[in-house]
């Protein structure tokens, strides 16, 4: 597997300018993907307050799409609509349609439990369960009945940890609590946990904001590898990060989707003045 001797390179990448980073990301960007997720006129209300206004966007399969924008712009809110995490908030109401592979996920027939098995999510702060590393990974497959305990489960755990680039670091201590890992390892554990249920889509809500630069670099590298198999949507505060990991970017501002474009093009030649202002650091 591609291990993380590239850490140093990634670390220096942090210091490069936005433009250079965007250019290097664009260099590896594959082209011509079909649409995986298609949102039409999605609005979100928290009680009386509207947090998102008529967002329509198509998200391509097996690419990394980054949502950027100043805090409170609605990018996390929209992300949480894609696996219906907003359902767990009582006062939250969603209108419009979001289709994955053509099926509307807000259709009453859709079971959010199944939806979330297909649309995994990784959160801002690493949140491993207070269980062993093994049980953290096995949790999803177990509840969905994908695998019984035993060699089949061991395989899933190993595969997931390998794909998350964590296997070599933890293979000797699978029975130790996941909370004992370092922050970066915990976040990769959470990614492995999401991978274990074999999702199509992985949503990442500022996955590196609680990590130090070295851990961040590892996670970013991992994201780049994961896009071979999964459609990834990542919310990020850091434009450098968006430039490094994403092929497409969407800019949100005050609950509106302002523009969607190839990351490289948006960063070099934004169409909207607000995007321009944000990227050049005039607000945010």
């Amino acid at each position: 597997m591609a291990s993380f001797e590239t850490t140093m390179e990634a670390g220096t990448a942090m210091n490069e300018t936005v433009k250079d980073a965007a250019a290097s990301a664009a260099a590896v960007m594959p082209v011509g993907h079909e649409t995986k997720i298609s949102a039409t006129k999605v609005s979100v209300f928290y009680g009386e307050k509207q947090a998102l206004f008529d967002v329509s966007i198509d998200i391509p399969a097996r690419q990394v799409m980054a949502f950027i924008g100043p805090s409170g712009c609605g990018k996390s809110t929209f992300l949480r609509c894609i696996n219906r995490m907003n359902d767990t908030i009582d006062i939250c109401r969603v209108t419009g349609t979001i289709a994955i592979d053509g099926a509307d996920i807000y259709d009453p027939k859709i079971d959010p439990v199944l939806l979330r098995a297909r649309v995994g999510m990784v959160f801002q702060k690493p949140n491993p369960f207070p269980k062993s590393i093994y049980d953290n990974i096995a949790y999803g497959p177990r509840i969905h009945g994908v695998a019984k305990a035993g060699s089949q489960m061991d395989e899933i755990v190993e595969t997931s940890l390998r794909r998350a680039g964590l296997w070599n670091e933890v293979k000797d201590r699978l029975r130790e609590p996941g909370t004992g890992l370092s922050g970066g390892q915990q976040q990769r554990l959470c990614i492995a946990r999401a991978i274990a249920v074999n999702p199509d889509v992985i949503l990442m809500d500022e996955p590196c904001s609680a990590l130090d630069p070295i851990a961040t670099a590892k996670v970013e590298e991992l994201i780049d590898e994961l896009r071979e198999r999964y459609t990834i949507v990542i919310v990020t505060h850091s434009m450098q990060q968006a430039a490094r990991v994403s092929q497409k970017a969407a800019f949100f501002h005050l609950g509106n989707l302002i523009e969607v474009d190839e990351t490289e093009r948006m960063f070099t030649n934004p169409r909207d003045q607000r995007t321009q202002d944000y990227i050049t650091g005039r607000f945010g």
Partner: peptide, 13 residues
Amino acid sequence: MSDTTQQPARKER
């Protein structure tokens, strides 16, 4: 990425 195993087949899409 060294994949050693194939995961169980996903349910009908």
